[in-house]
């Protein structure tokens, strides 16, 4: 059984900040998923939806910040309770930035009218799938307070960085071989960079989880 505070509303406050943050994380997971799918299936309407839903995430982040401020004021938490609030603040800010990157991907894809015939690679989509999987791991480590899952995230991020480099070189070759693809590939390279940043930020989340579980900043 989980340990409880003597003051039960304290537990309710901590549960609420965690569940609100996890819900926010799930919305952003869907945004990343949708924005990556735009690479395969052009859909201007969907792209605009993703961009618009970014405002909702900004609002959620503010709500979590207010909740955290309220808990700090009311409870003056210490030790693991304090870390829970500190990481909720950091992770909510990080997820808000991840949502910005997802919106940026949607923004890039809304400029694309058609995919050139000679563009046959799906390496960026593959990169996106890995980034999405790693983000899901990071938020799962938060949900389960699992240092074991959190420790996997930086390893996968190294793989993501390596694939990002490969994508970059590959797209240079595609552009050199067919000048018609330059416009499209440029957008794709920007998107690859956005994905690579989401990878880095997922690592930030996993580090915060480790700090919460182990009590030491690494």
């Amino acid at each position: 059984m989980r340990e409880q505070h003597i003051v039960t509303t304290y537990d309710e406050d901590l549960d609420k900040i965690k569940s609100d943050l996890f819900k926010m994380a799930l919305i952003v997971e869907k945004q990343i998923y949708d924005s990556i799918n735009l690479i395969k299936i052009l859909d201007i309407k969907k792209a605009k939806e993703i961009i618009k839903s970014d405002d909702k995430i900004d609002k959620k982040e503010k709500e979590i910040r207010n909740l955290a401020t309220n808990i700090l004021t009311k409870r003056q938490p210490l030790a693991d309770d304090l870390r829970k609030i500190l990481i909720a603040l950091k992770i909510s800010g990080t997820i808000e930035r991840i949502a910005d990157h997802a919106a940026n991907i949607a923004g890039r894809m809304s400029y694309v009218n058609n995919i050139p015939d000679s563009y046959l690679t799906d390496s960026i989509f593959h990169l996106g799938s890995l980034v999405l999987a790693n983000y899901a791991k990071a938020i799962s480590s938060y949900d389960k307070d699992s240092s074991k899952i959190a420790k996997v995230v930086p390893n996968l991020d190294r793989e993501i960085n390596s694939i990002y480099e490969t994508c970059f070189r590959e797209h240079l070759h595609i552009m050199m071989e067919d000048r018609e693809t330059i416009g499209f590939c440029t957008q794709m390279l920007f998107i690859a960079k956005e994905l690579e940043r989401i990878g880095d930020l997922s690592k930030v989340i996993s580090k915060e989880v480790l700090y919460n579980v182990e009590g030491v900043l690494k």
């Binding site: 340990e3 505070h5 003597i6 210490l78 030790a79 304090l82 870390r83 030491v216």
Partner: peptide, 19 residues
């Protein structure tokens, strides 16, 4: 002690837990 106590009893006391 107040950020990362070594002992569970300390942690429970300073965070107000039943244990």
């Amino acid at each position: 002690i107040f950020s990362n106590p070594s002992e569970k009893k300390t942690q429970d006391y300073i965070t107000g837990k039943i244990g």
